[in-house]
Design a protein around this nucleic acid. Sequence first.
DNA 1: GTCTATACGGCGATAGAC
DNA 2: GTCTATCGCCGTATAGAC
Lengths: 226, 226
Amino acid sequence: MQEKRGLGLPKTKENRRVKRKDRILDAAEALFARHGFDGVSMRMVAEKAEVDLALASYHFGSKRGLFDAILLRRAEVLNETRLAALEKCQLEAGDGGPTIEAIIDAYLKPLLAHGYEEDEGWRHYFELVAQVNNSPEFGGQLMTKYFDPMARKFMDAFKKALPGADPESLYWSYHFMSGALTLTFANTGRIDQLSDGLVSSKNMVAAYDRMVPFVAAGFRQLCEKE
Amino acid sequence: MQEKRGLGLPKTKENRRVKRKDRILDAAEALFARHGFDGVSMRMVAEKAEVDLALASYHFGSKRGLFDAILLRRAEVLNETRLAALEKCQLEAGDGGPTIEAIIDAYLKPLLAHGYEEDEGWRHYFELVAQVNNSPEFGGQLMTKYFDPMARKFMDAFKKALPGADPESLYWSYHFMSGALTLTFANTGRIDQLSDGLVSSKNMVAAYDRMVPFVAAGFRQLCEKE
DNA sequence: GTCTATACGGCGATAGAC
DNA sequence: GTCTATCGCCGTATAGAC
């Protein structure tokens, strides 16, 4: 049974537990993650959030405003968590500085925090970021806006850990890592099909365990002075 | 000046040089590459191709039919070129089989063939594939349909080159390579901004030169029995 | 904050003339 | 193969009542 809402109607536990504005964000996040910006209409969002059509425009100004709010909401959390992990491994490493593996770990592990396995919100968010990252229309602008200040701190750490490395190789290495990471979290199910079900794209822990050594070896090969 | 077309109108050199059906494919490829499937309308396609609105539906049945035709057109060429490169390096290698580097090279180098630098059609195509690859809606289905038979032959080659490797690690390694590759060819301009202009995302030769050793080192680290 | 109603244009697809 | 014309639906956004 679909619950009724409206002026003067009883505020159910469900309606009070998650506020309408957040319900809109969650519903839109799930829809944008699957269909992309242009594949989603405000009507779809309103229906999924069980909220009136006009409400999303009221809260976020426009469809694009809603999209940006979704990207920003979790970017702030993710950036803080990553930078905290970076600082922690830098403190623990002391004078020599952290290893490549430790830096990559600080970059990747936060994606599995925040209850990735349990919280579909974060899973939707990473699917969305995968699409934004690979979009010629949005990728350059939005990834820069939401993630570059964090990414630059990681680039500094990589530079210190790989003294004398060709800077261009460092940036390409970071880019390859970003591509591998976002496709892995894009959750397209393609690896399941290619492997005839041997590998599950849902098993992010298995992917993470392999991504750290894979990427670290790439960085070393390309950037390490022997 | 916009040239007139129509029944009985003079067939200009331009109109004969590229047939209308191909003009539709080229125009739609460019638009889908930038805006994605849902970000493009049949009206935009018709205008860019300078053909009538009804013509795209006539030739391809529907918008989705046009989209699939675009993916198929160059997938056939790319798959053939990649498989020819794979067979060539296998023949040259003899009994021991090719190295990881040679296999990866056979996978990556064909993207730079077909006149990548000169032919914007191929550049658009790779931008489109990057988005499809990372789409939860289309990625699993379409990448499997258009690229898996080719990909499975490469997986076989990797298995032979890395005897005793954990199969799951092999598939994840392939997946990381695919993510790094498609983001690199997505042409979002993000690496330009992150590097303050030091690195150009247009310089695909520089990217290719680094992607082969980066990915090969990852494969070895993860899959090589010492 | 929320809802009703609606403006106004763009959408994919097709029927039928030529 | 190509073009004209059109159908019916859906898109975003907003004005104004409550």
